[in-house]
Design a binder for these strands. Structure first.
Length: 996
RNA sequence: GCCCGGAUGGCGGAAUCGGUAGACGCGCCAGACUCAAAAUCUGGUAUUCGCAAGGAUGUGCAGGUUCGAUUCCUGUUCCGGGCACCA
């Protein structure tokens, strides 16, 4: 009886669906108490390209873990859903004229089909989609909670804004400094005299969800704001139009208030150190000082305010203050215009224009080219009073620290390079340590040439400087975080609308006066269905075009929408109670399922999604909506599955210039045709003049590199990466080139001189590992693999490829081995005539094979080493086959052990063993110690570290006896070469080393 | 540029706590079965010297610690991910 995976898998799937075996139950109280286990995958964004074999990697891992936990008696929650709002769907809508609702529906259906094909144990009855109004109703609700709350620094938690208002009414903000603007200070009387507008403005500076200003990429030609992704080489990806940074009013989440808690509670999470480190670096806590430098600019001292103006800098090295030779402001710094002298005005304006065209990334990465501009202004050194020149430069970012730095060129590499470049004299404050060739940035030694801190260590000097500055209010100790508040507005259509209405230009939540009593007050605020998604006027989102939606009798609705991470910041809570219409989830459900026990996803979410989710969880915890303040107890990062691309080497097209034009006579431009279809948008091979990307049909000049991409080459090359003439013909046909003359033209340069062993002409292709993506023509669809080999083979092969957390290339060729293994396993159970399992008593050897496997699989699953599990199954089946074992006592437990990996075949075998229920509900077998421990060990015996012989001893043998036996050995004597024994090393169960 | 990873045969990888480097699989080579092919099975397969026995070398590169290093430390090269509006 053959291993007919198609039948087997269909039967298993039908059973699972019919009996709803994967439905997870929230406990009702009178059920037997099972420990819970919440296993979650990062839900996918349903793109139009469908799933490729890389996507399910993490899902298979979580599926194995979920099934294993269930076999071990846990109540398992393992849900799946879709992150369905986002930019790509809108982009696609703009290009094709299909509504995002439609494309999203189609794409999710396709994803669902592909996922179902693989046999996951997801409880689909709990599916969530972030773009479903029933879901985003609660995204909006949580936004309102954040809008209506503030962070109480003294209690280190978020509280309702109503409580802040009563504090203001009684004592002003004396005890609660304003996080949005430290200069806002008022007492109760002042507060009570504020107008409504003034009160709302003030509260906005406290809210966890607030409005402020942020720089965005503005594209005049497209009339829209662009994502970083849509800006390539300084121009818009669509149409190559110029772009610039523009300040716009935006919503933000005040995540910075949580910086310290986000940092400190990392210690309790079972995440990889690397992942925690990335979050720590992102939060970027640094301890230093804030120092005020008085401005010496005449223009300012004459200013109308009359008060002294000063530049505040943040520095992590207050000890180096006597080495300050110049100061640098971010070009966007608010003081720049005020302090710039008349002579420098033009130069400064020019420089600011240049900086507007630069991304933050470019500004931070640039080290070779040093740019900056002198403002003409000077500031006074806080101790010496010496004038210090004030510059602006792109390497200082407005968003970090105070947007201004004190530059110490003798102690900082970048300051040093800047000073050298602009010829600014450098003061040495490190004595002999500073040579003048480069900055001395080591944090060791003493500070010199520095007045009252000369001769002091760095720590002592820093403390003394801060003390001296603090004495008269010119500075103070300061903790700074790199973390910035999260921009929460998008000028887009396909996202959650804000539950905000502007009344007299003041934003109100729809649940508060004066909106509360109108018909606008109910959630969700539904996204209106519109035909077009063109940008609104003046950089507003498309919703600004929908007048009947935007304009209400009470006021105007907010026309921005929420960003992609809004819905994904809390979805793990919704799975616990997905259909609840009166709360985001019932408290009983969230108390029960609690934290996610295991969360699996890619490292690309290290600082975005994972940080925002943690913040939302903390806010909901502080406001007493849930009972835990960290969402993901344990995190596992899966690596990427990369694609394998094949290239045909060719000298002929090297550096050739051709004109792209589809209407040219075919006879002359055959080469170009072929090249173009191979090369389409492939930056590796078609150099893009002037940074341009070519789309089919565009016209321009292209020079070709020496490699041609063989699209989907894995379908054509043989095991030695060779492309035979026949396969090449097939390839051209698949690309729409049926004309043999093309082949002849290409033949001259492409074919190898020698024929293959089979006497065929061939091209030796070059294999390369790249990202698996549609644009690289190397994607492999899991559906094809499942159709050819079955889901069980696919699942096991994905795991067999390598460790879950590292990137590795997909190679379809290797799948045969796993498929052969399953067929071989099948033959333990079935002979030519059918079921051959007997009730014979197993031998000791058979028991050992089984029990070692049970132990290894359990251990491996617990440490997520799934690739070695697959190896162990192979070893076990090889052993049992060699022993001719067809015994129930061995094979029935084996079927259960393999169930997490290959659930379909396990279900089929379970049925043949006569069980009515599903194997999913079986129990994972327990191993017996006596079958997994050995009594003797073959020790490798080394002489001076080199293994020379293997000797077997009992594990409980006496050390002295072993030494005697080893030294008596002829081979050992030979390698000791007559030298006396210096040391005898014996590690029980490991090895023996004789040192002579 | 900064932060975080990774590098082991022709290929994917194993070696779980510093203790026999290359498990398992692919590919390749040889053989069995077959009219033939497929499927299946058996044996071999890091490099190198040697008929063999056996020896030498070998985990990106250069050092270090150790009786012993793929594993720990220092430096370095290359590759991948992230860098705040892709998700």
């Amino acid at each position: 009886m053959e291993y007919n995976f198609a039948d087997i898998e269909q039967r298993a799937k039908d059973k699972w669906t019919a009996e709803q075996v994967y439905k997870a139950h929230n406990p009702t109280g009178n059920e037997p108490a099972k420990p819970k286990c919440y296993i979650l995958d990062m839900f996918p964004y349903p793109s139009g390209a469908g799933l490729h074999v890389g996507h399910p990697l993490g899902y298979i891992a979580s599926d194995i873990y979920a099934r294993y936990k269930r076999l071990n008696g846990y109540n398992v929650l393992h849900p799946m859903g879709f992150d369905a709002f986002g930019l790509p769907a809108e982009q696609y809508a703009l290009e094709t004229g299909q509504h995002p609702v439609e494309t999203t529906r189609k794409n999710t259906a396709r994803y669902r089909e592909q996922l179902d094909n693989i046999g996951f144990c997801f409880d689909w009855s709990r599916e969530v989609r972030t773009s479903d109004p029933k879901y985003y109703k609660w995204t909006q609700w949580i936004f309102l909670q954040l809008f209506h709350s503030w962070f109480d620094r003294s209690r280190n938690k978020v509280r309702p804004i109503a409580e802040l208002i009563s504090i203001f009414e009684q004592e002003g903000n004396i005890k609660n400094a304003c996080p949005g603007d430290e200069n806002i200070v008022f007492d109760a009387a002042a507060w009570n005299n504020y107008t409504e507008q003034q009160k709302r403005d003030c509260l906005m500076q406290y809210r966890m969800a607030y409005q402020g200003y942020a720089q965005v990429w503005w594209c005049e030609a497209l009339g829209t704001v662009l994502a970083n992704d849509e800006v390539v080489n300084g121009v818009s990806e669509r149409g190559n139009h110029p772009v610039e940074r523009k300040n716009m009013r935006q919503w933000f989440l005040r995540i910075t208030e949580y910086a310290e808690r986000l940092l400190s509670s990392l210690d309790n999470l079972e995440w990889s150190e690397a992942m925690k480190e990335m979050q720590r670096n992102w939060i970027g806590k640094s301890i230093g000082a804030e120092v005020k430098f008085k401005c010496l600019t005449p223009a300012l001292s004459k200013g109308e305010g009359g008060g002294e103006s000063s530049i505040t800098v943040f520095t992590t090295r207050p000890d180096t203050i006597f080495g300050v030779d110049f100061m640098v402001l971010a070009p966007e710094h608010e003081l720049v215009d005020a302090i710039t002298t008349a002579e420098q005005k033009t130069a400064i304006e020019e420089y600011k224009t240049y900086v507007k065209s630069r991304s933050e990334r470019e500004r931070m990465s640039e080290v070779k080219q040093i740019t900056g501009c002198f403002t003409g202004a000077y500031a006074a050194h806080p101790f010496t009073g010496q004038p210090i020149p004030v510059w602006i430069a792109e390497y200082v970012l407005a968003g970090y620290g105070t947007g201004a730095i004190m530059a110490v060129p003798s102690g900082d590499d970048r300051d040093f390079a800047f000073a050298k470049h602009f010829g600014i004299p450098i003061t040495n404050i490190f004595g002999d340590k500073y040579t003048g060739d480069k900055a001395y940035s080591d944090k060791a030694g003493t500070i010199e040439n520095s007045d009252f801190v000369s001769g002091k260590s760095i720590a002592e000097a820093a403390a003394l400087v801060i003390e001296a500055l603090a004495a008269d209010g010119r500075g103070k100790k300061k903790v700074n975080y790199k973390l910035r508040d999260a921009g929460f507005s998008r000028q887009r259509y396909w996202g959650e609308p804000f539950p905000i209405v502007y009344v007299n230009d003041i934003p109100y939540g729809i649940d508060e006066e004066p909106v509360k009593d109108t018909n606008l007050n109910s959630l969700p605020v539904e996204l209106p269905y519109v035909e077009g998604y063109k940008p609104g006027p003046e950089g507003q989102g498309p919703l600004a075009n929908v007048n009947e939606w935007m304009n209400t009798p009470v006021g105007q609705r907010e026309t921005n929408t929420m960003p992609g991470y809004a819905g994904s910041s809390w979805y793990f809570l919704r799975y616990m109670d997905p259909n609840n219409d009166t709360a985001f989830a019932d408290r009983k459900a969230t108390d029960y399922w609690n934290q996610v026990d295991l969360y699996i996803g890619g490292t690309e979410h290290a600082v975005g999604h994972l940080l925002y989710s943690r913040m939302w969880t903390k806010a909901l915890y502080d406001l007493n909506h849930i009972s835990f303040d960290e969402p993901f107890k344990r995190l596992l990062n899966q690596g990427m599955i990369q694609g394998v691309s094949y290239y045909i080497g060719s000298g002929e097209w090297d550096n050739e210039i051709a004109i792209i034009n589809e209407n040219r006579p075919p006879s002359e431009l055959v080469k170009f045709d072929v090249v173009c279809s191979f090369y389409h948008r492939n930056e590796r091979t078609a150099a893009k003049p002037q940074g341009k990307l070519f789309h089919a049909g565009e016209t321009g000049l292209v020079s070709y590199g020496p490699n041609i991409r063989l699209k989907y080459g894995h379908n054509f090359v043989d095991t030695k990466d060779r492309l035979t003439k026949e396969k090449y013909r097939q390839y051209l046909t698949s690309q729409g080139y049926a004309d043999d003359s093309i082949i002849d033209k290409l033949t001259k340069v492409l074919w190898e001189n020698q024929l293959s062993e089979n006497g065929e002409q061939y091209i030796q292709c070059k294999m390369e590992v790249e990202k698996m993506s549609k644009s690289k023509y190397n994607v492999v669809n899991p559906d094809d693999i499942v159709a050819q080999y079955g889901a069980d083979t696919f699942r096991m092969y994905e795991m067999f490829l390598g460790p879950i957390d590292v990137s590795k290339p997909w190679d379809t060729k290797g799948i045969e081995g796993v498929h052969r293994f399953l067929k071989k396993m099948w033959r333990l159970y079935f002979g030519d005539g059918g079921w051959i399992v007997t009730d014979d008593a197993p031998t000791d050897e058979e028991y050992r094979s089984l029990h070692k496997t049970i132990k290894k699989i359990g251990d491996d699953i617990e440490r997520f080493s799934f690739n070695t599990s697959v190896s162990q199954f192979m070893i076990c089946v090889n052993e049992l086959s060699a022993l001719g074992c067809h015994k129930r006592a061995i094979l029935e437990p084996l079927a259960v052990v393999i169930c997490p990996f290959a659930p379909h075949i396990a279900e089929e075998l379970w049925r043949h063993f006569g069980h009515n229920g599903s194997v999913v509900d079986a129990s994972f077998p327990k191993y017996e110690d006596r079958y997994v421990t050995d009594n003797t060990k073959k020790y490798p015996v080394a002489v001076n570290g080199k293994t020379r012989i293997e000797l077997e001893f009992a594990l409980d043998a006496d050390a002295a006896d072993i030494e005697k036996a080893v030294l008596a050995e002829e081979v050992v004597q030979k390698w000791m070469e007559g030298r006396p024994l210096k040391k005898f090393i014996y590690v029980r169960g490991k090895m023996i080393n004789v040192v002579a």
